[in-house]
């Protein structure tokens, strides 16, 4: 069972209180973008075995969206953080580096 701490209400919520929202930190390409950019925005997703960044919503709780960094292989959770950011904060990156030295994800490392 996956347990994530909601950064807004502090609740350690188990999976049934949460709604998975897919990959984190996607940049939206809409009107004015090229067909290639729009295609990648719509369809291209990371599917890593290991470090991953996701969006989750505390659906049966405070209702807020937040971010989580976790390992898809072991279900280890490195941390959760606010939705009001374009990239993972430094303390989350440090927590991942401590457990998975040399990790990469898209253009992050």
């Amino acid at each position: 069972m996956l347990i994530l701490e909601c950064p807004y209400c502090g609740v350690k919520a188990e999976e049934t209180e949460l709604h998975a929202g897919g990959e984190a930190h996607l940049k939206r390409f809409g009107p004015g973008s090229t067909d290639g950019e729009f295609h990648d925005y719509l369809f291209m997703r990371e599917n890593p075995k290991g470090v991953h960044f996701e969006r989750w919503r505390h659906a049966n709780g405070c209702g807020k969206w937040f971010h989580a960094a976790r390992c898809t292989m072991t279900l280890e959770v490195f941390g959760t953080y606010s939705a009001q950011t374009f990239e993972p904060p430094q303390e989350i990156r440090d927590a991942i580096t401590a457990k998975r030295p040399g990790w990469t994800w898209r253009d992050l490392k």
Binding site: Y8, C9, G10, C62, K64
Partner: peptide, 20 residues
Amino acid sequence: EVGRIAEGTEGAAAWMSTDE
């Protein structure tokens, strides 16, 4: 406070989320 209910003389206020 976060995750708490505050009782008052005329009613009560419960924390639903960061803005509710």
